[in-house]
């Protein structure tokens, strides 16, 4: 949850922690509605998603953004400096995605949720999940390819 919140909120640590906290408050108050035998992760992510949607509605404008260069040094350990360029680029490309695509990509690729779970969570048909996922991946792929390499790992 914390990882997804951080990725969703463009690496803003304070906002992400607030989001998780509020989602947890709600989860505790609704713990009765969780049914043993169903997927806990999907349940928690659904709550997190709903809280986030409400927060966005109630806020004017976008959440504060953090300069990618500031967080990048914390994300990359010294031994992996050679990868920092592609990590930074990836961060920019994720940020550039429309939010609906970014959510699907993060829930599927980062958090490993099933397509059906994501569809239910977002309240859209599974076909929509697939098309958003596809568009997100292709958008990132096209931009990274423009940087000079076909495979991401070869981008310098």
């Amino acid at each position: 949850m914390r990882r997804y919140a951080r990725a969703l909120l463009r690496n803003n640590r304070a906002d992400a922690e607030d989001l998780v906290q509020e989602a947890l408050v709600r989860a505790v108050s609704r713990a009765d509605s969780f049914q043993a035998g169903t997927n806990l992760r999907a349940w928690l992510f659904t709550i997190l998603h709903n809280v986030h949607v409400n927060q966005v509605r109630s806020k004017v404008g976008k959440p504060a953004e953090v300069d990618v260069d500031d967080v990048e040094s914390k994300l990359v350990s010294p031994s992996r400096q050679e990868e920092s360029v592609e990590l930074r680029e990836m961060m920019r490309l994720i940020d550039a995605l429309p939010e609906e695509q970014r959510k699907v990509l993060l829930l599927v690729a980062l958090e490993g949720l099933k397509y059906e779970e994501v569809a239910e969570m977002l309240g859209v048909p599974i076909g929509t999940v697939m098309s958003r996922l596809s568009r997100a991946r292709e958008a990132i792929r096209a931009k990274l390819a423009n940087e000079g390499g076909v495979a991401l790992r070869r981008v310098k």
């Binding site: 947890l24 408050v25 994300l75 990836m90 961060m91 993060l106 980062l110 990274l144 495979a151």
Partner: peptide, 30 residues
Amino acid sequence: EDYRAQTALLHDLFDGVLREPPSDAVQDLS
């Protein structure tokens, strides 16, 4: 191959969050 590389990059970017200690409030709520 590229999609898999994207997934790997996402984890490289964000898995570090899991190593950060949660705030007291989040820990308590958990």
